[in-house]
Every structure is written in C-alpha cells, then in structure tokens.
Computed example of a mutant assay.
Amino acid sequence: MTDSETPPGVGRDDQVVLFDGVCKLCNGWAKFLIRHDHQRRFRLASVQSPQGQALLAWCGMPTDQYETLVLIREGRAHVRSDAILHIVGGLPLPWRLGVVGRVIPRPIRDWLYDRIARNRYRLFGRYDSCLVLTPDHRSRFLDD
C-alpha cells in the first residue's frame, strides 16, 4: 500500500471506504455507515466504480478481485480488520466501543475477516449490479 500524499479524487482530510458494490454484506455495511455516521466523516466508493478502480490502483491492490474492505485515510490504505476497527473508531457510541477488538491479535482478526470475505457471496448473497442510490446516499459517495 502506498503512502503518497493524496489519492486521486480524495481530499486531504477525506476518509474513504471502498466496498464491493454487488456484495449484499458489503452494501449492508455501507448502509450502516450512512445511517450511523451522523457527522459524515466517511465517504464511500464501490470498487466497481471508476473512482473505486482508480483508488484500488493507487493502493496497489487488484482491480478485478475484491477480497477486502479498504479505508483510505491520511494518505494511507487500511485493509481487513484494521479498516473495520478504524471505521468503528470514527463512529459515535455505542459503535465506537468496537475498537476493543484491537486486543485480539491482528493475525487472528484477519484470519476471521478472510473467512467471511471469501465466503460472503455464498453466506449473504450478491446483487446483479451495484444498487441505485437515493439522493441522500449519493451525497455520501465520491463523484466519478
């Protein structure tokens, strides 16, 4: 992952969550963020969008396989369980309490994350295409 100053289309203070736009679990996570991120700290981009593809390339990640959620923050890409913990740390209580997951060693957290990520379509399903956004949701996404 890169540490260059600013990814394409992302402001210096933006926190961007990249997620699989056809995964039902990932879409549920995006909707959860929209519902609970009252301060609008996080912006969203599906990995299938042109902006998402550019950000994956910036991170040095594959643009054709989506095995992890990515949080881009302060010029760095955070992935897997670290991304989740950084995100919940930016949410209001009680969700912020999820950061206690840091007491679990990263290899164990990431092993569990990987098991869910690899089986997410089978466990939760997938959409045929990315969901259509409501006007409120659209304001939460990066412009393409």
Rank of each mutant, 00 (worst) to 15 (best):
D20H: 07
T63D: 07
Q51F: 04
D3Y: 03
Q39R: 12
L123S: 08
P50H: 10
G52F: 00
L131E: 08
H137S: 15
V16I: 00
T134Y: 01
R140Q: 11
R96A: 09
L97V: 12
R76N: 03
D37N: 08
Y127A: 12
G98N: 03
F124W: 11
Q15P: 00
S46C: 11
V99Q: 12
L97E: 10
V47W: 02
D144W: 04
R43F: 10
L93V: 12
L55A: 15
R73M: 05
Q39K: 13
F42C: 07
L33I: 13
W111D: 01
C59G: 15
R12P: 11
D14M: 05
I87D: 12
C130E: 15
W29D: 06
Q65I: 10
R80V: 02
G52N: 10
G89H: 10
C23N: 00
D114C: 07
L25F: 15
D82S: 11
H137E: 13
C59P: 12
R76I: 04
L33D: 07
R122W: 14
Q48N: 04
M1D: 11
V10S: 06
M61T: 05
P94L: 13
R115E: 08
C130N: 14
Q39C: 01
F124T: 09
P105F: 07
P107W: 04
D13R: 15
K31V: 07
C26K: 05
P8M: 05
E74A: 15
L133M: 08
E74K: 14
R12A: 13
W58E: 07
W58H: 11
W111T: 09
H36K: 03
V22K: 15
L56A: 12
V100Y: 00
K24P: 00
D14W: 10
M1W: 04
V16E: 06
T68L: 14
G90C: 13
L131Q: 15
T2N: 14
A77N: 04
L33F: 13
R120A: 11
L97Q: 04
G75W: 07
A83S: 10
R138L: 07
P105K: 01
D82V: 01
G11V: 01
F19E: 08
H86P: 00
D143W: 00
Y113Q: 06
A54W: 01
I87F: 09
L112R: 04
V70C: 06
S139V: 03
C26D: 00
M1T: 07
R115H: 11
G21K: 08
R40Y: 09
P92E: 02
S129I: 05
Y113A: 12
G75H: 11
H86D: 14
G89R: 01
Y113D: 13
L44K: 11
G125T: 13
W111A: 14
P50I: 04
S129C: 10
F124Q: 08
R76F: 13
R35I: 00
G101V: 01
R43G: 02
L133N: 03
L91H: 11
T2R: 09
P92M: 00
I116S: 07
M61N: 06
A54G: 11
C26I: 06
I116W: 05
I87C: 07
R120C: 08
D128W: 01
P62F: 13
V70P: 09
R73T: 03
I34Y: 01
R80G: 02
V103Y: 02
D144M: 01
S46M: 04
V88K: 06
Q65R: 15
V103F: 07
W58F: 13
L133D: 06
P62E: 02
